[in-house]
Amino acid sequence: MTDKELFQQAKKLEVAWNSLKVSINALSVASVIVNYDDEWSSYFFQSQEASDLEDNLLNIANVMLKVSNVICPNDFDSSEV
């Protein structure tokens, strides 16, 4: 794999990292709010927000797996997941 190809994969991981930071912040805020407002947790899980957060985390996992497979295609055993 060339340096240019590795750099392209690194850019994908950087986008995934930024998305992960947003998800972590959202979970932190949700945790604090739930501790002080029981009704907010019902809203969070009944609204699209919980689903959006789940989708975001799944997308991050998919990006990481794809990048891993591009960089090391023969080193990953999907049965380990």
Score class of each variant (00 low, 15 high):
S23E: 05
L58S: 11
W40T: 06
K4D: 13
L65F: 09
D52I: 13
N18T: 01
V63R: 02
I33L: 07
N62H: 14
N74K: 05
L27T: 02
N62V: 15
I71H: 03
S51H: 09
K21S: 06
V34W: 02
S23H: 01
S68H: 07
Q8K: 15
D52C: 13
N62K: 12
S28N: 13
L27M: 05
V63H: 02
S47G: 02
M1D: 10
K11T: 15
D77Y: 00
Q48H: 09
N18A: 00
N56F: 04
V15Y: 07
N69W: 11
E80K: 06
I24H: 09
V63N: 05
L58F: 10
N18S: 11
E14L: 13
S47H: 00
E80G: 04
D3C: 07
V29K: 03
I60Q: 03
D37Q: 03
D55Y: 09
S19L: 07
D3Q: 14
N59H: 10
E54N: 15
L20P: 00
S42F: 10
T2G: 14
D52G: 10
A50I: 07
F45D: 05
E80Q: 02
K21A: 03
E39P: 07
D77W: 04
W17F: 12
K21H: 03
L20F: 09
Q8S: 15
V29F: 01
Y36Q: 12
P73H: 00
S51Q: 08
D3I: 11
K66N: 08
V32Y: 03
L53K: 06
L27I: 05
V63I: 08
S78M: 04
L58C: 12
N25W: 11
L57D: 00
Q9T: 15
S79D: 09
L58T: 09
L27D: 02
S47T: 00
L6D: 07
I33Q: 04
D55A: 14
L6I: 13
V29R: 03
L65G: 01
F44L: 02
K12E: 11
S68N: 09
K21Y: 04
E5N: 07
S28E: 12
A30G: 10
N59M: 13
